[in-house]
Design a protein around this nucleic acid. Structure first.
Length: 940
RNA sequence: GCCCCGGUGGCGAAACUGGUAGACGCAGCAGACUCAAAAUCUGCCAUUGGCAACAAUGUGCCGGUUCGAUUCCGGCCCGGGGCACCA
């Protein structure tokens, strides 16, 4: 009987679907295990072989855990809202709801063929009202919350109102004053008393509360993408252009919704220590959060109204202007030679001298005109002196104040103290503008480069002379605090996340505007359904398409929609209880499933999705809605599968195509060809002629009778003709072969180019496995007792598969299966006691063929729930190899031995070993030295 | 520029806390079966020298630690990824 994979796979996929074999219950009696894939947005392009890589890895692991006796949650769904889905719809002139539904259909069909164990009864789709009802609901929780820095927790906004009524905001200063003012006409002080609070009208009170809300609306500099007609979050902008489409992005001041993720910076950083992410991932996240510590120092301005100018009488008697700077190196304070303000700094126009005013205005205008992209592309040194001076806090030096675009308005205080001898950028700036440099590092500073080491003693630095950075930083901060002119300060690079899009295809905000105040809709109004519109392209400047919907604007509803990451920030919770109509997920469900034990996906979401979901989880945790504050316990990043493109070489001006080895003899043009009719590098010239009409009468200049293509590894994409469709491979070799081959390519975490060539080897393995069971005469499996050799093969394999699967080394697992089948073939093993457990081991990797053979040899029950075979070390205990070694003239033997052997077993084995006996020559055994798990040194 | 990760046959790769480097697979070569082909099976397959047994060399390069280094340490070269005026 032949291995008929098509019939087998169809039969079992049907069987498992009909019997709901993958449906899981929230069964608290079994230990749980949650394996999650990053859900896809259903693009219309269809899958290529790179897409299922992570899904196959997670499927193997989920099936493995199930065999190990866990109740495994392994769901799948669709991230259907957001820019990619909408852009696809726009490009194809179809309504996003229609294209999304169609793409989901295609996607599902492709996935089903590969034989995944997803519990589709738990499927979620972020664009369905019954799902986004709860996205909106969670948004309302965030809107109705504030971050209490004192308790370090997200709390209900009511608790803040109570605090205001009692003590004003003395204990809870506004986190970023002015940031949340959507309406510039409302004014309120930064600090207020209880009485003041009570005296404010509703509008002012609401404006104040907005300054605290975790989800808030305000004016801010946002990344505006004209081509996409929307605002983008920082992580959606790469090198000054949009991540999606590569369109230019400019800074623009707009009304925007934000998430106050900055308040969670410290916890997001600390939480990284409790999760199992790769070092690279943790580093990317901590770089993005960008915590630094130092001091904020107040510099006092020297009044420009100097006596010789004769303006003395005119000066109003207010206290002198001050400028706060942030520095991580307060120890270098005696090296301050100038200060620099960001051109956007609010004091620039106040401090500028009359002589410098024109130059400063010109420079500010110039900076404003420059796009983000230009700034990044040409980092030339630029700046202007303001004509103003500040007083050095500890000496009588006059510090000139400059402005320059190298100082960013959005970080720290938007102003710095410049220490050219201790900072590269300050050094270059000083050199460029010929500002004299004070050396505080003695001989270590040569005048060429700034000294950035923290391990050198300071010179010419008054009370910190002779100290190294660490000590001096403390000394300076102490003195600043004592004099009331500075504080210890921590800063974060992370900014609040822009949470609104001026687009159609997203969750509507459950917010209503009344007289310039945002009010939440009542829960009973959820879901607030996205209205159907015909015109869903970008709307008028700063406003989304919803602003064109009359019914919508009449109800004064918010016209922005939520960004793509809204729905994906909590979907892992919905899988736990997907049909719940009264809660986003019941507490009992979230308490049972808790964190995702294994999350599989690409690294591209490092600073977007992963950070946002971590933040949402922390907020929900603080509010008592779930009982864990990190969503993902362990993260596995699968590598990218690259395409391997093929080229032909057309002799210029002809229809002759020359093989790669001979192309240097001609003047040629390089043309991409579809990899699917190239076998390795040898092209099927007939298929090429048929490919496009242009090539139908192509002639070929061959080498050794073959046409050899050129090749290059690049990203897999349709336009490069290097995509390989999994459907084709599944049709030709079967899902089991495809799954195992994807794993066999190399470590999952590693990026590698796709190469179809080797798939035959894996297919041969499955055929060989099949022949252990069946020959021409039929089923050969017997109930005879296995031999020692057969048991050894089995248990060696159990051990390998278990270890390798646990550490995600799926490629070596596949090799181990091949070795096992080769060895059992050599032993002509047909024993059920060996083959049945082997099938269980194989079931996660090649579920269909395993199930077929498992039932063929008369096993009861489903292989999906068969117990994972137990490993017995005693079958492996025997010396397999000896190596004589001479060390320092003494003879030693090294013996390879079973890993799990007990000490007595080792003793017995060593003494029985022939080689050792020979060396010992009757002398007593002196010492056994374990060298490495399974190796021992014998000292005679 | 800074921070990660990697560099092993013709190719994809393995070697888990230092212990026979190249498992397993692809490609290649030789052979068996066959009228023939496919399928299958067997053997060979790092480099150099040799008919051979064998010998020498060999995990990007240079040096170190060790009885022993792909693995650990120091310095360099190359490739991939991330960050990039964050004071």
């Amino acid at each position: 009987m032949e291995y008929n994979f098509r019939a087998i796979e169809q039969k079992w996929q049907q069987h498992w679907a009909d019997s709901n074999a993958y449906t899981v219950t929230n069964d608290a009696s079994k230990p749980k295990y949650y394996v999650l894939d990053m859900f896809p947005y259903p693009s219309g392009a269809g899958l290529h072989v790179g897409h299922p890589l992570g899904y196959i890895a997670s499927d193997i692991f989920a099936r493995y855990k199930r065999l190990k006796g866990f109740n495994v949650l392994h769901p799948m769904g669709y991230d259907a809202f957001g820019l990619p889905a909408e852009q696809y719809a726009l490009e194809h002139g179809v309504h996003p709801a229609v294209s999304t539904a169609k793409n989901i259909g295609t996607f599902r069909g492709q996935l089903d063929k590969i034989g995944f164990s997803f519990d589709w009864s738990r499927q979620v789709n972020t664009s369905e009202p019954r799902y986004y009802k709860w996205t909106q609901w969670i948004f309302l929780q965030l809107f109705n919350s504030w971050y209490n820095r004192a308790s370090n927790k997200t709390e209900k906004i009511d608790t803040l109102i109570v605090a205001f009524e009692k003590d004003g905001n003395a204990a809870h200063p506004i986190p970023a004053f002015g940031k949340a003012q959507a309406d510039n006409s409302i004014h309120f002080p930064e600090r207020f008393t209880a009485e003041q609070w009570k005296s404010f009208d509703e509008k002012t009170q609401q404006a104040i509360l907005m300054e605290y809300r975790v989800a808030y609306c305000g004016y801010g500099e946002v990344n505006w993408c004209e081509a996409l007609g929307t605002v983008l979050a920082n992580d959606e902008v790469v090198n000054g252009v949009s991540e999606r489409g590569g369109y230019p992005v400019i800074k623009k001041r707009l009304r925007q919704w934000y998430l106050r993720i900055t308040e969670y910076g410290d916890r997001l950083l600390q939480g990284l220590q409790t999760v199992d992410f790769s070092d690279a991932m943790k580093e990317m996240q901590s770089n993005w959060i960008g915590k630094s510590s130092g001091a904020e120092i107040t510099f006092e301005l020297i009044s420009p109204s100097l006596p010789e100018k004769g303006l003395g009488d005119e000066v109003i008697d207010h206290s002198p202007l001050t400028i706060d700077v942030y520095t991580t190196r307060p120890d270098t304070i005696f090296g301050v030679d100038f200060m620099v303000l960001a051109p956007e700094h609010e004091l620039v126009m106040e401090i500028v001298s009359d002589e410098q005013r024109a130059a400063v205005e010109e420079y500010v205008a110039y900076v404003k005109s420059r796009s983000e992209r230009e700034r990044m592309a040409e980092k030339k040194i630029s700046g202007v002196f303001t004509g103003a001076y500040a007083q050095h806090p500890f000496s009588d030096r006059k510090i000139p104040i400059w402005i320059s675009e190298y100082v960013l308005a959005g970080y720290g205080t938007g102003a710095i103290m410049a220490v050219p001898s201790g900072d590269e950028r300050d050094h270059k700036f000083a050199q460029h503008f010929n500002i004299p440099i004070t050396n505080i590092f003695g001989d270590a500073y040569t005048g060429e480069d700034a000294v950035t080491s923290k391990d050198l003693v300071l010179h010419d630095s008054d009370f910190v002379n002779g100290m190294k950075a660490k000590e001096a930083i403390e000394a300076v901060i102490d003195k600043l605090v004592a004099q009331g002119i500075g504080t210890r300060k921590t800063n974060f690079k992370i900014r609040d996340a822009a949470f609104s899009r001026q687009r159609y295809w997203g969750e509507p905000f459950p917010i209503k505007w009344v007289d310039g105040v945002a009010y939440p809709l009542p829960e009973s109004a959820l879901p607030l359904e996205l209205p159907h519109v015909e015109q869903y392209g970008p709307g008028k400047e700063g406003e989304g398409p919803l602003s064109e919907v009359k019914d919508w604007t009449e109800r004064n509803l918010e016209t922005n929609t939520m960004p793509g990451y809204a729905g994906s920030s909590w979907y892992f919770l919905r899988y736990m209880d997907p049909h719940n109509d009264t809660e986003f997920a019941s507490k009992s469900a979230t308490d049972y499933w808790r964190q995702v034990d294994l999350y599989v996906g690409g690294t591209e979401h490092a600073v977007g999705h992963l950070l946002y979901s971590r933040m949402w989880t922390k907020a929900l945790y603080d509010l008592g809605l779930i009982s864990f504050d990190e969503p993902f316990k362990r993260l596995l990043n699968q590598g990218m599968i690259q395409g391997s493109s093929r080229f032909v070489y057309r002799v210029r001006g002809s229809n002759q195509y020359v093989s790669a080895g001979l192309k240097d003899q001609y003047e040629v043009d390089e043309i991409r060809v579809d990899v699917n009719f190239v076998d390795g590098v040898e092209m099927d010239t007939e298929a090429f002629r048929k490919w496009k009409p242009d090539f139908s009468d192509a002639e070929f200049i061959l080498e050794n009778g073959k046409y050899i293509c050129g090749s290059e590894v690049e990203k897999m994409s349709k336009s490069k003709f290097n995509t390989v469709n999994p459907d084709v491979l599944v049709e030709k070799y079967g899902a089991d072969t495809f799954r195992m081959y994807e794993m066999f390519l190399g470590p999952v975490e590693m990026s590698k180019p796709w190469d179809t060539k080797g798939i035959e080897g894996v297919h041969r393995f499955l055929k060989k496995l099949w022949r252990l069971f069946y020959n021409e005469a039929g089923l050969q499996v017997t109930n005879e007792a296995p031999t020692k050799d057969e048991l050894k093969v089995l248990h060696k394999t159990i051990k390998k598969i278990e270890e390798d699967t646990e550490r995600f080394s799926f490629n070596t697992s596949v090799s181990s299966f091949m070795i096992a089948v080769n060895e059992l073939s050599d032993l002509k093993c047909t024993k059920k006691d060996i083959l049945a457990p082997l099938l269980v081991l194989l079931a996660p990797y090649a579920p269909h063929v395993s199930a077929e053979l498992w039932s063929a040899i008369g096993n009861e029950g489903s292989i999906l729930d068969a117990p994972f075979p137990a490993f017995h070390a005693e079958y492996l205990v025997e010396a397999s190899k000896e190596y004589p070694v001479s060390i320092n003239g003494k003879t030693r033997a090294q013996i390879d031995i079973a890993l799990d052997a007990t000490e007595e077993q080792v003793q017995a084995l060593v003494l029985a070993n022939e080689t050792v006996q020979k060396w010992m020559e009757g002398k007593p055994l002196r010492k056994l030295v374990f060298v490495k798990g399974r190796m021992i040194n014998v000292v005679v």
